[in-house]
């Protein structure tokens, strides 16, 4: 039998799949690109939820991997490599290396230290990207053309990009769902619940946490590759600490430790930002107030809030 969350995910994917034709029919085809971006951030949020929600590792440097993915596209493009598979591969390898090195150091610590160190490493990468004057330094650079698939420029069509992103989102969701229910996922959840208990039954927890950190980084770098293609513009801002904060917000608003929640949180957050930005140039003020209210008055995110309002108790 399918769980309620599984059903919810299926419904979300079905709705996403029919979005472009509906929007085009309504004459609002432009919004499809907004939805594409929402889905790309959903991939990034899923990856963050793996370590944040299942591993209880509050990483505040996750946007670095978004930046690594985006700059992989820009750099390979300048070398004439436009194939998206090659770009995915390069981004994932670069992200894995960066995550393995910084993760090994950061995971020696706990709590507040871990938050500060991941934040610092994220900032280190941010400054590295700014120093790349060949790629526009502070301002970044626009992408001459979108990536190609087997030499074909299919992604120049927004619809093709939309369905590629949807497909990858679905794959990530499926893969991570399996992972969280696997032996590995069980160990990861165990370390979240009680690290000492896990050691007392014979697990050395660092390799598991580091593996999760690296997997999470690789998935996020895939989102970075897609984001560069969607925006057709790459800048260090993609890797800023505010971006890392936004990724955490997405995961927490959706309900931490639930993949469906992380995905929904990302869709909701980007949607809300887009909507608010249209209403007021000072949307960040209102967004901040909303976030503060949620944290102070509804720990557990919007999912609990919604459940409380509708009186249905805590969702499973």
């Amino acid at each position: 039998m399918m769980s309620r969350r599984g059903m919810a995910a299926l419904i979300i994917f079905a709705l996403l799949a029919v979005t472009p034709p509906v929007l085009i029919f309504m004459g609002q085809g432009f919004f499809a690109s907004v939805v594409t971006r929402m889905m790309i951030y959903a991939i990034a949020a899923l990856s963050l939820d793996l370590i944040l929600g299942y591993g209880a590792l509050v990483s505040f440097g996750h946007a670095a991997f978004l930046g690594i993915g985006a700059y992989a596209v820009l750099m390979l493009n300048s070398l004439g490599v436009t194939d998206i598979a090659a770009q995915f591969g390069a981004a994932a390898v670069a992200a894995a290396v960066f995550a393995a090195i910084t993760g090994t150091i950061a995971l020696r610590t706990r709590g507040v230290y871990f938050i500060m160190i991941t934040l610092a490493f994220g900032q280190m990468l941010y400054f590295f990207l700014i120093s790349l004057s060949v790629f526009g330094g502070d301002d970044g650079a626009s992408l001459p053309a979108r990536s190609t698939i087997m030499g074909q420029g299919w992604l120049d069509h927004d619809l093709a990009l939309f369905y590629l992103v949807l497909g990858i989102l679905a794959l990530c969701f499926l893969g991570l769902t399996r992972l969280t229910m696997s032996r590995f996922g069980r160990v990861l959840i165990g370390t979240r619940e009680d690290a000492l208990r896990m050691q007392a039954i014979g697990f050395r927890i660092l390799p598991y946490q580091l593996t999760a950190y690296v997997i999470s980084a690789m998935i996020c770098s895939v989102a970075g590759v897609l984001l560069a293609n969607q925006l057709e513009y790459v800048s260090p801002q993609l890797a800023s600490w505010q971006r890392s904060g936004e990724l955490i917000i997405m995961v927490v608003l959706g309900g931490i430790g639930s993949l469906t929640g992380a995905m929904t949180g990302a869709l909701f957050t980007i949607g809300l930002e887009e909507g608010m930005a249209r209403i007021s140039e000072h949307w960040k003020l209102y967004f901040g107030l909303l976030l503060l209210a949620v944290v102070l008055f509804s720990p557990g995110g919007l999912a609990t809030l919604a459940a409380r309002i509708t009186g249905k108790g805590r969702p499973e």
Binding site: L179, S182, R183, F184, G185, Y208
Partner: peptide, 9 residues
Amino acid sequence: SSFRFWRGA
């Protein structure tokens, strides 16, 4: 090994 990522535990 617990480095198994796909099969349900």
